[in-house]
Design a protein around this nucleic acid. Structure first.
Lengths: 224, 224, 224, 224
DNA sequence: GATGAATGAGGGTTCATTCAT
DNA sequence: TATGAATGAACCCTCATTCAT
């Protein structure tokens, strides 16, 4: 009953060019790469098949490691899954919070948000991560909890601060969005879900959808 | 070596209002009841665990039948799942189409839609059926196809006819909704998903959310 | 509760001219027909799939009866199987014994045997019955026992009496066949087995095979 | 919804003489042993119960492995069955072909054949393998095909070359056996089938049977 | 650390048999 | 008698997890 021999290697994969980190022991670097490879492989497999149907053997093969190796880095399938979500979403939250601090007109922010969403979420595997949270969240209370506390509530707070500034500035006549910030992001959600389910029947342009939505709610006459 | 998988009766489901036929033979009635019991049990189990993780043994136990009995009514697990979706959603589409034919002001229709949604979807197991389609749809092309053709496209068409009338009447200045009817229903979707994932952290009143949304897009000054 | 209005029409006329049986109560006649139908259906299914893989549901459907009806006539699947063998083989033994009593030259008898074999065994479902005994016999001791006592030993005895007469008459110089009558029938067996296994690769004419065999062992110069 | 059934090593079977390689890694050796154990266990179970009725759990228990282990070596039950046949029969074909190349009198060859048959087939489990092919072949076209191409046609060819030499030498007056080599082996077949079905009622000495047969067809006066 | 062979519980599906109608 | 819906034991196969090397 080997305890996890721990000294769990650092997160954060070396992204892009391989070893830019200057002074990491080869051991530690290899370890971090392994962990990254496994997470990346898991992303593909969980995205493609869902949690239950994804097979750790396929994750291992895709990562180029043996099945047992996965258990050196992650306690079990469920932990791997949760770490995968964390690994993908944590970076964007920071970027998002940072991007919303600039004091620019609401419409400009909206355009930035749209581009950011399309570039960082819709155009990447993160789209599938969102879908995974929606699909598997109800069966993984801890996952939903992590997502709510570490991602969603921070993003909502960022939104609210933007919105409050916009109301103060008179750009928004109403404060409904402060109360229901979900209304701001719902088109993004719809775009993601539609894409996975119905794009083959009727494609949906996420940018156009979100622009139309902001035109309406910002109510500036462009769409009226 | 494979055998032709045996025949399955698949008697007509008790769509909508129950049996109006006054004199059903006991056999046929029992059969319809069994089918109904199995579908109801499957709804609970699939909702609670998802398609893969739901166990037919639990469905059987919950329905009060033996495991093998399920196979008298449904060819396999997947068929049971699809029939379940069909059984739950087909009736509401008709009701919805009928409800949207009245020639009344858009705001009245909107209020009716909200009430209908809360009563027929959000307040029932149908909410879970929607969630199931979102979760499992990507892995069940036929399911997504059925849902798109038999449910979604019909509902979208109904929406569009309402919206076109509203534009013609001058109630709507823009025709974006005719182009993106998804924007109309996105709050309902958000409400369902939020409910399953985050209600325990921060409850969300679906009626309030949807009303806020319609206030904004109908733009009549109440919320502006 | 409409009962099936029944009056189930009789199946398949009882071979050759229709009703030659003079005075059977309708009940008894119907019952015998049912039994016959089930046996005939079982012959097809067991021949085609073997004992284990044959499904009683298919037997019932083919016989035009309900699954439960089979159990009114036969105790279980195994009994049905054994009765089937008995039903098919009992008649031929008598015919065979009768045919071998004529006091004619051995070669004439041989030719008659060949024709009888081709007509009554190889050209009919009885060929499959033989195969079934070979395939399933080791797992059904009672079946092998029945076959040995009721069929084989009687046929062997008949053969031996022919052979003894032939030896006495000087038609056969040796009495090996009296000791090993199996050598007489082995080509028939080979023909049956070859037919089921390899005919598609290399057809085998049973009549030619058997004639060649008798030419050799009767050693009369035709083939020498 | 189907997954690609995973890979199967299928290391080379220990054909004929065991491992001549002196230094096998323990891993590889254990693997070959396991495969052999499973095949041997499968031989017992399939022989005793037939393909359908044999249970893989019993094979596993007999081989001393877990149920799942079988699937590390064989894709499924059917593959295990076919590999079993191949494993048993391939070696004898080569041995047989080799044995028939000596240019010795026909009667000598015949005696050698008889001894070889009794020693290598009748006295071993290969007898049961032959029975399995006969029993299951009609339901496993691929099995019959393998057997015909890899075993039977090669043996027939070997027989024919012997026979042609014998005809040329004047040892055989007729060439019927060149046309129907089945007639040469039919007593061996009869011996095998008789053994499985009727030996308990009336034992049959395979050697005596085959000698009697060859005496007759070689027609040299010993038996006349 | 890394491997991958081995494990064995678990679940979908089949089908002989029963029994209420 | 006849039916066929219902039963539930049985069995093949999968795959997360372990552990000797």
């Amino acid at each position: 009953m080997a305890k996890t021999s721990s000294s769990n290697p650092r997160k954060a994969a070396p992204r892009g060019t391989s070893g830019s980190a200057p002074a990491k022991s080869t051991r530690a670097k290899r370890s971090a790469e392994r962990r990254h490879d496994i997470l990346a492989a898991a992303l593909e497999e969980f995205s493609g098949h869902g949690f239950e149907a994804a097979r750790l053997e396929d994750v291992a093969r895709r990562a180029g490691v043996a099945k047992g190796t996965i258990y050196l880095y992650f306690a079990d399938k469920e932990t791997l899954f949760q770490e995968l979500i964390r690994w993908q979403l944590t970076p964007v939250v920071g970027a998002f919070e940072h991007a919303t601090q600039a004091d620019v007109p609401l419409r400009v922010i909206a355009d930035q948000m749209i581009e950011m969403f399309v570039r960082e979420i819709y155009g990447t595997r993160r789209k599938d991560v969102i879908r995974l949270i929606i699909s598997e969240g109800p069966r993984f209370p801890k996952l939903a909890e992590f997502y709510y506390h570490e991602v969603l509530s921070r993003m909502i707070e960022a939104f609210r601060s933007i919105l409050r500034r916009a109301v103060a500035r008179g750009e928004l006549k109403s404060d409904v969005f402060v109360k229901f910030p979900q209304l701001l992001v719902s088109p993004g959600l719809v775009a993601i879900l539609w894409n996975g389910l119905f794009d083959r029947f009727e494609p949906l342009d996420p940018r156009a959808l979100m622009r139309a939505h902001f035109d309406i709610i910002l109510n500036d006459g462009r769409a009226a």
